[in-house]
Amino acid sequence: MTRRVRHALLVLAALVALGGAYTLLVPAPQTASAQSGQAQIDQGRALYEQACISCHGSNLQGAPDRGPSLVGVGDAAVYFQVSTGRMPLARSEDRGYRRVPAPEFDPDTDQGRANLAALGAYIQSVGGGPQVPAETGPQLIGSDVGHGGDLFRLNCAYCHNFTGRGGILGAGRYPPRLEAATPEQMYTAMLSGPMAMPVFSDKQLTPEEKKDIIAYVLAVRGQNNAPGGYDLGELGPSTEGVIAFLVGLGALVLVAAWIGARS
């Protein structure tokens, strides 16, 4: 057995030992079933101490240059930030942008929903703040799409574009597209005002009005608003003008050339 092979085996053994120790020592992610009250809050605290405490502090007070205080943000902010994958933050460059949510907080799984509720309950129990609505999914979609459109143009379209395709802010930041946002995420975003977004309280936009806005966004996003077959990105009149100019005028030129060649 050569010296080199012996070294390689030694390194391999050390790696295996390290991995095994890691698996044994680090606790499995906490799971929560349908709990309520103090048990749920305790569950949430455990999740907080795993995923959030290093930046937001042991008492939600925040840490300088790492994370803001979470006192008073409410479980609406927790639901929005964590279910859209914005939190827990892996790299500081990702701050504020939608990513795939952490598996234990995936709102598409039962366990993820329970964990989100527990974490929210803990944050809510400490500082209060805007709360996640009791309704979910289709119950958050209003009936008056037209009024939702009026309100969207009055309150949201400046930043998110008139059909929710996102936009620009100063200093290289941009308001997100609303293509993937679920009704719960839109509702909690309006309530909590994440990142640069302003807060829209229930007195300013009533729950019914928020639901109408959600209905409007769902009605115009995707290819729902493309009676011509394709929406051209819905970035505004410039794209449509360029396409009309190139395709439309190009076709006219070709037809004119064809007529000229025939006669």
């Binding site: 005002g193 302003p198 807060v199 007195k203 300013q204």
Partner: peptide, 13 residues
Amino acid sequence: VRPEDIDQDGVVT
């Protein structure tokens, strides 16, 4: 509008 209608960081037209 009353002051309590708008939350901190809120804006209304």
